[in-house]
């Protein structure tokens, strides 16, 4: 039976991590001597179906319905569970985003199937899909398999390469109805405020991160501020005016340590580490981060780590390929200038 891949879409575009999931699915399909079926639900599904073909899907199932528009879990689960019941796929695979975690866990419960989440490696052995996934925030790895007819798998972003798209392709496209979706949904969407202009941490190839050291900004806080309030102001000012320009020059996302988030220097969305996001970019630049074990757990999968810290003894240096011992407020602007000179 085919390997299903949910191609997650937003505002009519496929998420790039979905193509990584399609690549991972192809490996599984090859191991099981079957093919891949991309599932494209919602807006602009016809165009995305063609893209899925170019990225290697042999078949595509599309479903367009108004009730899929605002990403309510209930409609997607109903649709996916019906397809799983009717077609008994060998596996259902998706990139481990928030929406995919919800969707695959829900559909796996509906069909009493095993779910292996957040895998960084996949293989087939004697017809079983075996996933390697981090546990204890990456301090330990575990190998896991599902004992059920269908295995559900979410794959960690950037753990699998996206296939190179073909110039053109002609996948077998099938449109299915949305009868499975209840006419009355339990959740009403009142408002959606998009997050604009920021690179998503988990998709980012480069991350520039700031820690407690961000408060050592030489730029003076307003005169009426003192103590903690002044530190927060200085750190926020540093994230916006020192780190962000470097991140923008690099096309990087902004990360932060728990210490910086807990101190109120930056919003939680940016936290990297055990109680934040686990990331694995090509390049991770840690600025003013000492490198507590909780932080390491979130970023140790990065390909190249660079540490900038005043304290030559900071544990982050042991994990880093390159280090500069110095004040981040001097080093980061110099780095941006050097980069701009190099790029002309």
């Amino acid at each position: 039976m085919s390997v299903f891949v949910w191609i997650e879409t937003f505002a009519g575009d496929a998420l790039p991590s979905s193509w990584e999931a399609l690549g991972a699915a192809q490996t599984i399909a090859d191991g099981l001597n079957t093919d891949t079926t991309a599932l494209v639900f919602g807006e602009n599904s016809d165009e995305i179906a063609d893209d899925a073909g170019r990225f290697g899907a042999q078949r595509v199932i599309v479903c367009a319905d108004d009730r899929l528009q605002d990403h309510r879990l209930e409609s997607y689960t109903a649709l996916l569970s019906q397809l799983v019941e009717e077609r008994a796929p060998s596996a259902v695979i998706a990139a481990a985003t928030n929406r995919a975690r919800e969707l695959l866990a829900s559909a796996a419960a509906d069909s009493e199937s095993g779910l292996i989440s957040d895998v960084i490696d996949l293989r087939v052995e004697d017809g079983f899909i075996i996933g390697t996934r981090p546990a204890y925030a990456g301090k330990v790895l575990m190998e896991m398999t599902a004992n059920t007819a269908t295995s559900f798998v979410t794959v960690r972003g950037r753990a699998f390469p996206a296939p190179t798209p073909a110039a053109d392709s002609a996948p077998e496209i099938e449109a299915v109805g949305a009868d499975a979706i209840p006419s009355e949904l339990g959740v009403r969407v009142d408002e959606f405020v998009p997050e604009t202009g920021q690179v998503n941490l988990t998709d980012a190839a480069i991350i520039v991160s700031g820690g407690r050291g961000m408060a050592n900004n030489p730029c003076a806080a307003p005169a009426d501020m003192s103590g903690n309030e002044a530190n927060i102001w200085k750190a926020k000012h540093g994230f916006a005016n020192t780190l962000r320009p470097l991140a923008e020059a690099l096309g990087a996302a902004i990360g932060a340590s728990r210490a910086a988030v807990d101190a109120g220097y930056i919003a939680y969305e940016h936290q990297v580490g055990q109680t934040g996001k686990v990331v694995n970019p090509d390049l991770y630049i840690a600025c003013g981060i000492s490198g507590a074990i909780q932080h390491q757990a979130g970023m140790r999968g990065s390909k190249i780590i660079v540490a900038i810290n005043k304290d030559a003894e900071a544990p982050i240096f042991k994990l880093s390929r390159y280090g500069i011992v110095g004040d981040l407020y001097e080093v980061v602007p110099a780095l941006r200038e050097a980069l701009e000179e190099k790029l002309g």
Partner: peptide, 28 residues
């Protein structure tokens, strides 16, 4: 529905750190 087959210690990060040297911040 699932079986944990085995647990493993992650491969050690084989990294040798190069502390960038230079006369001043710009050079580094």
């Amino acid at each position: 529905a699932t079986t944990a087959l085995r647990f493993m210690n992650p491969p050690a990060r084989a990294v040798s750190t190069e502390i960038i040297a230079g006369a001043d911040v710009k050079e580094k």
